[in-house]
Amino acid sequence: MVMKLRTAGYFFKQAGISLWRNFWMSLAAVASVAISMFLLGAFLLLVFNVNYIAASLQSNVEIAVFLQVDTPRQAAYQVRDQVMAMPGVTEVTLVPKEVGLKQLSQQFGGEEELLGATGGVNPLPDYLRVRVADPETIHEVARAIASLPGVEKVNYGQEVVDRLFAVVRWLRWLGAGIILVLGLGALFLIIITIRLTVYSRRREINIMKYVGATDWFIRWPFFLEGLFLGLVGSGCAALAIYAGYSLLLTRAGAALVFIPLLNDRVLLLNSVLSLVAGGALVGALGSLLSIRRFLKV
């Protein structure tokens, strides 16, 4: 695979000649790589963002721990301390029944009316608002709290959490599937393009084999051609993704305050660079696959 410097020029020239000779086919391959890689990049960012939104929603999910109505305040503090001591718990707030009643009345009307409806007795229990560090541990923490003495009921929107997890998981699989299909499509188009070149050069290749050219000497120009197609295509896609997402952040960021868009330059740059690397890989792989058969002489 070692390339002498003076031969490198020859390889680049050969690759350039074939790219130019099959100009329209090369253009089609570049365009298809660009489109596939653009969709791939867009989907990657979509997955990242859904993940991000899901994560931020999950981190907002609290556990509401309702104590038994007749629990003395002192016992309530004890429960709070026990919960606080549990691993993974980051924040516990005790909401006394009086505060709870005030909150309820702010939502539904006068305190007196509510009390009147229940015969002057505050029907609410004290309750604890619990936050956990890792949303995925919320099940365990909730179960542990439920087994504590004095705890009446634990409520944490289990279904919402589970559904979010399911959506995220499903999106990841869908994303992987789409990325695979698009990647294969781009690979296939590059293979076809290179194979056209290989085919138009099959007599040259045949003679090269007979006069003792090494396999890598024969491969290099095609390898470079494929690499070029992949790089240019994915480079266009990367630019479009980068510019498009930046625009989305500045323009839509203000309009869509309620949807937290992921604003992470490093991640964006990494995604864009992976696209370029992916395009180069697809191009190189495509060209190696197309020439393989013709080297068997």
Binding site: K4, R6, Y10, E204, I207, M208, V211, G212, A213, F217
Partner: peptide, 11 residues
């Protein structure tokens, strides 16, 4: 010349 070029004989 092709036969020499592809076995990397110096130009």
């Amino acid at each position: 010349a092709f036969a020499l070029r592809v076995i990397e004989v110096s130009p």
